[in-house]
Structures are given as structure tokens and as C-alpha cells.
Amino acid sequence: MKKIAIYATILALSGGGLYSVVAAEKTAEPAAAAATTATEAATAAPTEPLVCFESRKGASEITQQDIKPGWPNVKCSPTTGAALWYGDPFEGTVPMGKMPGLENLPEGHALVKPRSEKLAILPMCGTACHNGVGPQFNPPTLPKDKKPTAIPTMEGLVPDLANFQHGRGRIWCLDCHHTTQRNKLVDNFGDPVSFDQPQLLCGKCHGDKLRDWRDGIHGKRIGEFASNGKKRWFTCTECHNPHNVQDGVRNRGFIQLQPEPSPQLPRGMANADHEKVHPIPH
């Protein structure tokens, strides 16, 4: 309730600026970020905590702190702010929950970092508008069928929707989001799926990727390398933004990001221009 209250305050403060309040993710929101760190601030040093992103900017993040003297939970890159080294790979994780194909793993060996904590407007989705009981929404204005309709409010909330490319126009909101429970995703049978388990949804279409992910070939796992070891699994949306699969500047697979610094030049070498010289002129 406290969390909801915070968001409600933010919502009230920004007045007409609903657009500015609810970017899809918390990172861009200093107020929301402050709310996250508020709990830790009591125990942590007064200095600004160092927060680094894990796979891509805007997805999961981790706050640097010492587990024991001289042993941080994470080391962050001073150049890019990316997480570079894990002292504790399981920090902030919860059990993955039921996942078909992974039943043989020992209890508590499959962990994920909850995505719902990162999604800024998620707590509001089911209460503020899509609660189905508010005066304006009584009876709730649910779509009659699955035909796509432009929803200006939602486009205001998630700017990526203006040029929505996922599925190349063959899918729309309610193919992934639950019709009546908007803080849930939806599986093939219309049953709600938690935002912490997007693999159950994404696997509906991307079955080959789901199979590879389940076997550890696609995606990322950290922790113990043994096949039945304790691992933190990175879920689909920690690396991919489903609302923006065709990033304009990106040219393949993964969103573009800043690289870490290049290696030191050997003695007597002023620059690395020789690398660009082709042995065969063309």
C-alpha cells in the first residue's frame, strides 16, 4: 500500500503531466529511484550509492555495497556503468516458480530477479484504471474482440507503442497483456502469467528460443555452472524490450550500447591506425 501511495503522490504532483510520470521503466524517474533506495538509505552510508545496470540500460539494476570488508556484491564499470563482476550472483533473487521442462532442478536452484519491482506503473495498472470498479469503468470498458484499436492513453504511457513493431502488425496489446488483470501477462489459455515469468508468455511464439533458454544455450545464467546447480536465470525482458524490438539505431539482436575502453597500445605505437589498413587495396 505504501508503494502505491508513493506512486499516487507522484501522479498527483505531476498533475497533467501523466506522460512524464510513467515512462515504461523506473530508471528514468529520479523520484521513483529515490523510493527504491529509501529503504536502503537508512543503513547505507550517506554517500550516493553506486547503481549499475546489468544487461542493458533500463532493465535490471544492482546497487553496489560491501558484503564483507573488501568484498563488494558487484563491481561497476567506471566508463559505462555496467555491472562488471559479481561478488554475490544471487542478490535480490526469488525462486523462478513453476517452469515446464525444469522440474528436475532441485528446489530453490532456479532463481530470478523479480521484474515487477522494476516496472514503474505496474502497481497502478490493476488499481488506478484497470480495476474494473471505478466510476468511469463501471461496467469496465473491455474490448469486445481482439481487433487492434489505438488507445491514446496507453500510447502516452509507453512511447514505444507509437511505432510498435513486435510481430510486424500481426499482434497487439491483448495478445500479451491480460484483458482484465492488467498487471499480468497472458498465456495461450487466457490464464494470467506473472511479469516475473515472461518466458511462459514469450515461449508461445518463440518456442525455439524458449527451448534454448531452458537448456542454457540462449540467454544468460549466473551462479553455479553444474547443470543442476544453483543459478540466477535472466528472464526474457531483462535483456529484450518487447515494446521495442526494432530499435531504429540498432542493427541486430541486442540494443546498442557503449563499449568498454580499448586495450593499451604497445610501446612506441601512437595510435591503432595500422589496424584499418587493408593488405589488399580495394
Binding site: V249, N251, R252, G253, F254, Q256, L257, Q258, P259, P261, S262, P263, L265, A272, H274, E275, K276, V277, H278, P279, I280
Partner: peptide, 17 residues
């Protein structure tokens, strides 16, 4: 065919096209 390839590349963003 760039002899040993480029190790010192340093663009703004990767991957490059």
C-alpha cells in the same frame, strides 16, 4: 582481411552495422 583484425576499435556504440 584486415591483417590481424582490429583490437583497438572504439566507436560510440556497439554493435556497429
Amino acid at each position: 582481411l584486415v591483417l590481424e583484425g582490429q583490437y583497438h576499435y572504439n566507436p560510440e556504440k556497439v554493435p556497429e552495422a
